[in-house]
Computed example of a mutant assay.
Amino acid sequence: MAFNNTPLVLIPGLLCDERLWAHQKAALEHSRHIFIPDVSLDASIAQMAERTLDEAPPVFALAALSMGGYVAMEIMRQAPERVMKLALIDTMVRPDDEARAKARRGLLSLAQLGRFKGVTPQLLPKLMHPRCIGTAIADTVQAMAQAIGKDGFVRQQQAIIERPDYRPVLETIAVPTLIVVGEDDEITPPVESEEIHRGIPHSRLVMLPECGHLPPLEYPQLTTQLLSRWLDDESIAGP
């Protein structure tokens, strides 16, 4: 396989690290440089985006999941000229409604009181399809959360709560864009991805059956195939 000069930046979501993208990195790093930023160090989406831009190659393809999608949208606002292609996986662009924001503030308060429990077994069904419960996928999700820890979780939740409305950015995106969502995602359900698809001209939307919020882990090979096509095939931008 020939080495492609366009690097790929993969941005993890809330309580996730490079292990979220393990399959994609292993499969794609033979053909291009892969960079996975640490998004647990900053307390605002803008700062996460700035750190990523500071550390990333000059131009790159950009794929992101969930909270990482907010960072990707901020990058598209701050430095769109550096992004050659965009992939948004199980994310949203509108700010939280009051119920969701209230729930986040409650979790944030508990964590600040020292009651951070990571991703508990009770939370797993909201994150992934039932077929993944009790598997190594669930173990990876819980291990990533423990690695990010309380302080990282507090910073990330604060950043999410205070994030801006990214809907106005959608119509400015002119690069080939792939949108992926699990049909059973309870965190950012398909309606959120449909809104993104409507807002980005000539984007492509793919819905994955029997999949929750974490396609890179729930369907690693399929996610890698979708990203590989998006990277290599210009027709991915077709309606």
Rank of each mutant, 00 (worst) to 15 (best):
N5E: 15
P7W: 09
L8R: 06
G13N: 01
C16W: 01
C16F: 07
D17Q: 03
E18K: 10
L20D: 05
A22R: 11
A22I: 10
A22M: 10
Q24I: 10
S31V: 15
I34C: 10
I34W: 09
V39W: 01
L41F: 03
D42A: 15
D42K: 05
S44N: 02
I45W: 06
I45C: 07
D54N: 14
E55P: 00
E55D: 13
V59N: 09
A64Q: 04
L65Q: 08
Y70M: 13
A72L: 03
M76D: 01
Q78K: 12
A79Y: 03
L86C: 04
T91N: 04
V93C: 14
A99Q: 14
Q112T: 07
R115V: 05
R115T: 00
L123D: 08
L123V: 11
P125W: 08
H129E: 04
R131Y: 07
R131S: 15
A136T: 15
T140Y: 00
Q142Y: 09
M144N: 03
A145H: 05
A145M: 11
I148S: 06
G152H: 05
Q156Y: 08
I160H: 00
I161R: 04
E162D: 15
P164C: 09
P164Q: 14
D165M: 05
D165T: 10
Y166E: 07
R167T: 15
P168W: 10
V169D: 10
T177W: 03
L178F: 01
L178R: 00
L178Q: 02
I179F: 09
P190L: 05
E192A: 13
E192V: 01
S193A: 15
H197Y: 12
R198G: 12
L205D: 03
P209A: 13
E210D: 14
G212F: 00
H213T: 09
P215G: 02
P216N: 07
E218K: 04
E218G: 07
P220E: 03
Q221M: 12
L227Y: 04
S228M: 11
R229K: 10
L231R: 02
D232C: 09
D233F: 03
